[in-house]
């Protein structure tokens, strides 16, 4: 499902995706299309696409760690005002344990543990909320424009 609210000062688009690693390219395509429509410059656009893809990847890898063949869907909503972008993720996976969400020490070079670091580097704020039914998790990322 893809919904759009067109307004000159407040734009919002939402789309849902199967929770699967093969959906990540579709999440990126959706995000690029939306940011192009929102007239976000290319450099910032690609940073935001990376942050979004990392957050979606975390849902696949962590919230659905024990359910690789799930048919559940996750939703991504991108909203933009004149001054701020808000990107929300909704999923029905395992509830996020906020205390366990951390990246590895950046100078401890080893594979893994960078996704959350990239999100923190790119975005201004990261908030984990309980999702309104039927969702379990609602991650909200914001970035001042």
């Amino acid at each position: 499902m893809n919904t759009e609210v067109a307004d000159t000062t407040n734009l919002s688009e939402k789309k849902d995706f199967l929770v699967n690693s093969s959906s990540l390219k579709d999440v990126r395509s959706f995000s690029r299309e939306v940011f192009e429509k929102f007239k976000i410059n290319e450099e910032l656009r690609e940073e935001l696409v990376l942050a979004i893809a990392e957050a979606a990847q975390n849902i696949v890898k962590h919230a659905y760690k024990d359910y690789p063949d799930t048919q559940d869907r996750m939703a991504v909503r991108i909203s933009c005002t004149d001054k701020e972008l808000e990107i929300s993720f909704f999923d029905k996976g395992k509830p996020v344990e906020k205390s366990k969400v951390k990246h590895r020490a950046i100078d401890d070079v080893k594979p893994g543990g960078l996704g959350t670091f990239f999100i923190q580097e790119i975005m201004d704020s990261i908030k984990f909320k309980e999702g309104d039914k039927p969702w379990i998790n609602n991650l909200v990322l914001t970035k001042k424009l």
């Binding site: 990126r28 990376l50 893809a53 990392e54 594979p111 960078l114 996704g115």
Partner: peptide, 10 residues
């Protein structure tokens, strides 16, 4: 053209 944290891990 694009690499995420998984690619960096590789």
């Amino acid at each position: 053209q694009y690499m995420d944290s998984s690619g960096i891990s590789v």
